[in-house]
Simulated scan of single mutants.
Amino acid sequence: MNVMITGATGLIGSRLVRILAGQGFHIKALVRDKKRAAKLVSEPVEFITGDLNNEVALEEALRDCKYLFHLAADYRLWVPDPESMTRTNVEGTRLLMQKALEAGVERIVYTSSVCVLGTNADGSPANEDASSSVTDMISPYKKSKFLAEKVVMDMVRDEGLPAVIVNPSTPVGPGDSRPTPTGTMVLNAARDGGMFYADTGLNVAHVDDIAHGHLLALQKGKIGRRYILGGDNLSLKDLFAMTARITHKPGPKFKVPQPVMYSAGFTGEMLARLGLIKNPVATMDSVRMASKKMYYSSDRAEKELGYTHRPATEAVQDAVCWFKEQRMLN
């Protein structure tokens, strides 16, 4: 049975490929660079060279496929040209969904994000019905993901697109080769104990649980319905302390005041705009995002899909072990 996947070399996508291969699927993956993809994905995969704005490549990748997993996205905290991110995340998603309809794909799992959802003012975990609008989206990335999910939802309603939406929280675990922004925080905390922390919080889930949730969404999800794929809600201080315990480091000690964070964000952006650095450690958007706790509940996925998640400490432990194996802790 043929299945097409975008984002196969990403953290969640690469783990999903392992699961799909184990289920006996013939996997077709849209990638920009076949040689690089072959280094990151060890399972048997038919690679199609192209991107989300390449109609010919999309048609080739979708040909004879029964299912589609769309995980690919331009995910950067700092982007000098927000329009390039919109072209990939929004217009690329629109084109892919149109081509999937034309190809007769029977079922689609679209990977959105919890970042498009609202949060509860009292800090309690929010669910899939937490309201938000595009004006609530702080960064270009969040805005693009909000608009891309809307494209999918509108096509489900207006064109009969057979898509299920999953909203992963923060994936942590093995295979984070880039690494992701959260993976970078875990890696740094593993190195130095995460001595400095912001007063914020996030939902942490093992990447393999999120990847398996994608398969469950394909098998059991309702068309047009959202499912949060998450794990444990943790303060950033607790996440750093958990990581420090694993690597026997001192642990977090100093909470960074917001004025200092804003100063760091402003400085990082200015240096990036001047071309003096490529990827600032902090930006104004990242500081604004850190001003609220991103806590979520996976109750719907647990009840309707049979989704389960292991404790966050296992996700961090597996991430640290993988970083050690890759010699990234040196």
Rank of each mutant, 00 (worst) to 15 (best):
G268M: 08
R178Y: 14
F266K: 12
S14M: 07
Q326I: 00
V79F: 01
A272C: 04
D199G: 08
M137T: 08
F146M: 11
V56G: 11
F69G: 01
G193V: 05
M289S: 02
D74C: 06
N233D: 10
S177G: 00
M153S: 11
M4Y: 04
R226H: 11
R273P: 01
L229F: 03
G104T: 10
A57K: 08
G193K: 05
R63C: 09
R288G: 00
K237T: 01
M85E: 13
L305S: 01
V207M: 10
A205Y: 09
A241I: 01
V207E: 08
R225G: 01
K255L: 10
D122N: 14
P311S: 10
K150D: 06
I277M: 07
G92W: 10
L58R: 04
G251L: 04
P125N: 12
K34S: 12
V156T: 06
S286W: 01
T88S: 15
A37Q: 07
H214D: 08
E269C: 03
P280V: 02
K99L: 12
V109H: 03
H212S: 11
W322V: 00
A103S: 15
G175T: 04
V134Y: 05
D232E: 15
V105L: 03
S177V: 12
S112Q: 03
L276G: 02
K293L: 03
V281C: 00
G306Q: 09
W322N: 05
Y227E: 08
G224H: 07
T88D: 07
L234Q: 07
P257E: 04
R191Y: 07
C115H: 09
A29S: 12
I277D: 08
H26M: 06
G10T: 06
E314C: 00
E106S: 14
D285I: 01
L117S: 09
G265K: 05
M242I: 07
D285K: 00
W78A: 00
L276T: 04
K66W: 03
L52H: 08
D74Q: 13
G10A: 13
D33Q: 06
R327W: 00
M1L: 13
S286T: 13
R191S: 02
S113H: 10
P259I: 11
V41P: 05
P174N: 11
G268S: 06
R32H: 13
G231Q: 10
P174H: 03
F25C: 03
V256Y: 00
E46A: 11
E102L: 15
K222F: 03
V164L: 02
V79A: 08
H309Q: 02
K249T: 02
R273A: 13
D74L: 13
S263T: 14
M261Y: 03
G201A: 13
Q317A: 14
